[in-house]
Nucleic acid binder design. Structure first.
Length: 652
RNA sequence: GCUGUCGUAGCUCAGUGGUAGAGCACUCCCUUGGUAAGGGAGAGGCCGGGAGUUCAAUCCUCCUCGACAGCACCA
C-alpha cells in the first residue's frame, strides 16, 4: 500500500508495492491522464513511467504549468529535433540540447555545414516524426553499456559526456518506439510525441563545444515551442514587436546617431542623440553635486607605462588597449579612468581627514573589443563612462556602498526602470593582488550589500582583475542583459600606483578605492533607454519636445510667434512651416517620435491657444498658451514618465 | 576572434552573366487642406573595396572592409 499526497492535500492509497505517475493520473481522471506529461515526486521531476516505491507527495505536470512547458520543449529538442537531424544527416554528431527561455537549442557537429535554408527541411522532418506519435521509453544503463551504445552510433560527444561524468551508473537513455533512436537525458520526457505542441526552429548559429573558445565550434539550432499554435503565434508576434524597439532602428527614425565603417564601434552623435546625451550628463551632474563629488577630466592618450603599473596592460594588453606612438613612447588610448584618478589623488599629500574623496569624470575610454562583440550603442569601442572613484578607508566602505546603491536605485527609478537586478562577481582567474586582499575585498563588499539590503545574484569568477564588483543589469528589447551601473571594490590599484594618505596615527596608508559607474556608459544607457521607451522618451529627454505647425500657410506668422514663445520659455521646439496638409505633418512627426505637435489654426490664433497632439496618445487637446507652457515646465521639472509608461493613460 | 547570413539610390528593399528597378525622402509645379500619406513632374546609383574567371561581372570564385544573429569575450 502506497500513500500519495496530492497538491490539494488529499491522500490517495494504491495497492501494491509500486505505483507510477500514469496510474495516479488515471485514478484522478481520464482528462488528466491524457494531459499528463510527467510527475513531481517529493519535489523531483520524474517520468510518468517511473516507479514510486514509497509514500510521497506527488503532483502531475501538464503543459499548462511552466515546468510542463519546459519538459515539452526539452522533448522537442532532445527527441524530435535530434532525431530529425540524424535522419537527414546521419553523419552528424549530437552534443547537447537543453531548454532555454521560451525554447530550446541543440548543438550538433555537422560534417558539411548547413545553412538557415536547411531549417525548413529539418522542421518538416520534425513534423513527420511527431506524426508517428511514437511513445518514448526509458532504459537505465551502466556507464559501460551507455558508452558502448554511443560508440556504436558514432556519437563521440555523448561518449565524452558519459566518460567524463562523475555519475557511476544509472544513465538514462530515452528511445522512441523501435526507431533505434536514443538520446542520453536526465529527463523527464513527455510520454509520447502526441504531447508535443507548436514549435518553430528560429535560428542557426555557431557555439563552442562546452562553451570554450579553444574547442571546436558546433552548429547550434535554436527553436521555440509552445503548448499550442496560438501561444506560438503570440510569441512570434511579441518578438517582432520587440525588434521594432531596437535602438539602432529607432535611432535612425529619430535621427539620433549613426555609425559607419570608418570608425567601427564609435558613435557619430547627431543633434538629437547628443541632446539626450547632454541631458543625461546634466542630470547626473546634478546628482554629483548633491552627493559631494568633485568632477575632474583626464588625458586620453597616456604613456602605457602607467597601465603597466596599474595592471591593466598585463590583463588586457595589446588585444584590448588601442595604442599610438607619440613622442617616441608607446601610448595607450585610455581603457579606464582609474589610474588617472589615482594620479590626481597622489598629486598632493592626503590626510585621513580628506576621506572619502569622491572623484568623478565623464571619462572617454577606448577599448578594442572583439569584432563580433560590437553591438550598436550597447557595445562600443569608444564610450563615455559616468565614472567615479571613491578613495576611502576600510571603515568607510560600507557606508559608501550603501550610499551608492541608494543613488543607483534612485536614478533608475527616476528614469523609469522598475526592474533590474544586481550581480555579485567575485575573483576571476586572471587577477592582481594576494588572496588575503581578495578575501578582504569580497567580504567587505558582501557585508556592505547586506547592510544596503541589496539582493544579489552570484556570478562567480567574473569580477574585475583588481577587485570584486556589483553589476546593475538592465535588459534590452529582446531580453539580452547589459551591465549598466557597477560598484567595484579595489584594494590593489592604490597600492600598485603608490597612493597614500596619512592616518590619525601618523602612518602612511593606502586608501581603498571604490570604482563606480551609475549609468555605466552613456552610450549603452542611451541604447537601453531608447529600447525601454521605444523612442517615446520622457519630455525632459525628448530631442524635439514640440513641433508647431499651422493648418494653412496663412497661419505661419502665428506659428512663428508661438514657436518663439516656446523657445524663449526654454523648450526644444521647431516650427513646421511647410506647405503640407496637417495629416501629413502629424504622421511624419509621430514617426520621428516628436513628443508633441502643437497646431495653430484660425481658432487658436484668435484665442491665444495651442492644440496639442501627443506622441502615444489618441486625440488632441487645446490649451491656453500660458497654461501649456506651465504644464510643460512642470513635466520637465518632475521628469514625468511618458504616457506609454504611466498607469492611467489619457489623451493630451 | 569563431560559425552562419548579409552589403544595390538618403532610407526600406526588389532584381539580372550583356554597366539597374520600386516605394518613401529630396527638388519644382499644382493644391490652402483641422490631426498618421492630396496630385503631377524631375533629379538621384563606380550594385561596400580589391583581385581573378569570362568576349562580357552588380551577379561566379578568392581576398578584404563593414553589418546582423549566436558563441566566446566584456575593464
Amino acid at each position: 500500500m502506497i500513500k500519495i499526497t496530492l497538491p490539494d492535500g488529499s491522500i490517495r492509497e494504491y495497492e501494491g508495492v509500486v505505483v507510477t505517475g500514469t496510474q495516479i493520473a488515471e485514478s484522478i481522471g481520464a482528462g488528466l491522464a491524457k494531459a499528463a506529461l510527467a510527475v513531481t515526486v517529493d519535489g523531483v521531476q520524474r517520468d510518468l513511467s517511473d516507479p514510486i516505491k514509497a509514500d510521497a507527495k506527488v503532483s502531475i505536470i501538464t503543459v499548462d504549468s511552466p515546468e510542463g512547458l519546459e519538459i515539452m520543449r526539452h522533448t522537442v529538442a532532445a527527441q524530435v529535433l535530434a532525431r530529425a537531424v540524424k535522419n537527414l544527416y546521419p553523419s552528424a554528431k549530437l552534443a547537447i540540447g537543453p531548454t532555454i527561455e521560451d525554447g530550446f537549442y541543440y548543438d550538433v557537429a555537422f560534417q558539411e555545414p548547413i545553412s538557415s535554408d536547411d531549417l525548413e527541411k529539418i522542421e518538416k522532418e520534425m513534423r513527420k516524426i511527431i506524426e508517428t506519435h511514437a511513445s518514448i521509453s526509458k532504459s537505465i544503463n551502466s556507464k559501460a553499456d551507455t558508452i558502448a551504445a554511443f560508440k556504436e552510433r558514432g556519437e563521440d560527444y555523448k561518449v565524452k559526456i558519459v566518460e567524463e561524468s562523475e555519475q557511476k551508473d544509472g544513465f538514462q537513455l530515452y528511445a522512441q518506439g523501435d526507431t533505434g533512436f536514443v538520446d542520453l537525458c536526465r529527463g523527464p520526457h513527455v510520454p509520447t510525441l502526441k504531447h508535443i505542441g507548436a514549435f518553430k526552429l528560429t535560428k542557426l548559429a555557431g557555439a563552442y563545444w562546452r562553451g570554450d573558445s579553444n574547442n571546436e565550434m558546433l552548429t547550434r539550432i535554436y527553436g521555440t515551442a509552445w503548448k499550442n499554435d496560438k501561444d506560438l503565434k503570440e510569441y512570434l508576434h511579441r518578438m517582432e514587436e520587440a525588434e521594432k524597439r531596437d535602438h539602432r532602428k529607432i535611432g535612425k527614425e529619430m535621427d539620433l546617431f549613426h555609425m559607419q565603417g570608418e570608425a567601427p564601434g564609435q558613435v557619430f552623435w547627431h543633434d538629437g542623440g547628443w541632446t539626450i546625451f547632454k541631458e543625461l550628463e546634466g542630470y547626473i551632474r546634478g546628482k554629483l553635486r548633491r552627493h559631494n563629488y568633485q568632477e575632474v577630466n583626464t588625458p586620453r592618450l597616456i604613456n602605457k607605462d602607467l597601465y603597466i603599473k596599474s595592471g591593466h596592460w598585463g590583463k588586457f594588453g595589446e588585444n584590448g588597449i588601442f595604442t599610438s606612438n607619440a613622442y617616441e613612447h608607446e601610448h595607450a588610448l585610455k581603457p579606464m579612468n582609474c589610474p588617472c584618478h589615482v594620479e590626481i589623488f597622489k598629486n598632493d599629500g592626503k590626510s585621513y581627514r580628506d576621506l572619502p574623496i569622491r572623484m568623478s569624470e565623464f571619462g572617454n575610454c577606448f577599448r578594442q573589443e572583439a569584432r563580433g562583440a560590437l553591438h550598436g550603442l550597447m557595445r562600443v569601442t569608444s564610450m563615455t563612462q559616468d565614472d567615479a572613484h571613491i578613495f576611502c578607508t576600510v571603515e568607510q566602505i560600507e557606508q559608501e556602498v550603501i550610499l551608492l546603491n541608494d543613488l543607483i536605485a534612485e536614478i533608475y527609478a527616476e528614469l523609469g526602470f522598475e526592474s533590474y537586478f544586481v550581480r555579485f562577481s567575485d575573483r576571476p582567474d586572471a587577477r592582481v593582488g594576494s588572496d588575503e586582499i581578495w578575501d578582504a575585498a569580497e567580504n567587505g563588499l558582501k557585508k556592505a550589500c547586506e547592510a544596503a539590503g541589496v539582493d544579489v545574484v552570484m556570478n562567480p569568477g567574473e569580477g574585475a582583475f583588481y577587485g570584486p564588483k556589483l553589476e546593475y543589469v538592465l535588459k534590452d528589447c529582446i531580453g539580452r542583459e547589459w551591465q549598466c551601473g557597477t560598484i567595484q571594490l579595489d584594494f590593489n590599484q592604490p597600492n600598485r600606483l603608490g597612493a597614500f594618505y596619512v592616518d590619525v596615527d601618523g602612518e602612511k596608508k593606502h586608501p581603498v578605492m571604490i570604482h563606480r559607474a551609475l549609468l555605466g556608459s552613456l552610450e549603452r544607457f542611451i541604447g537601453i533607454l531608447i529600447e525601454h521607451y521605444a523612442g517615446h522618451l520622457p519630455l525632459w529627454l525628448a530631442p524635439t519636445q514640440i513641433v508647431v505647425s499651422g493648418i494653412v500657410e496663412d497661419h505661419n506668422p502665428h506659428v512663428e510667434k508661438a514657436y518663439k514663445r516656446l523657445k524663449d520659455a526654454g523648450f526644444r521646439v521647431k516650427a513646421d512651416l511647410r506647405n503640407e496638409k496637417i495629416n501629413y505633418k502629424i504622421r511624419e512627426h509621430m514617426h520621428a517620435k516628436v513628443a508633441m505637435v502643437g497646431v495653430i489654426g484660425e481658432k487658436e490664433a484668435a484665442e491665444d491657444t495651442i492644440t496639442i497632439r501627443r506622441l502615444g496618445a489618441e486625440g488632441q487637446k487645446t490649451y491656453k498658451m500660458d497654461e501649456f507652457i506651465a504644464m510643460c515646465h512642470e513635466e520637465v521639472k518632475t521628469k514625468a514618465l511618458p504616457l506609454s509608461h504611466q498607469k492611467d493613460k489619457q489623451a493630451a
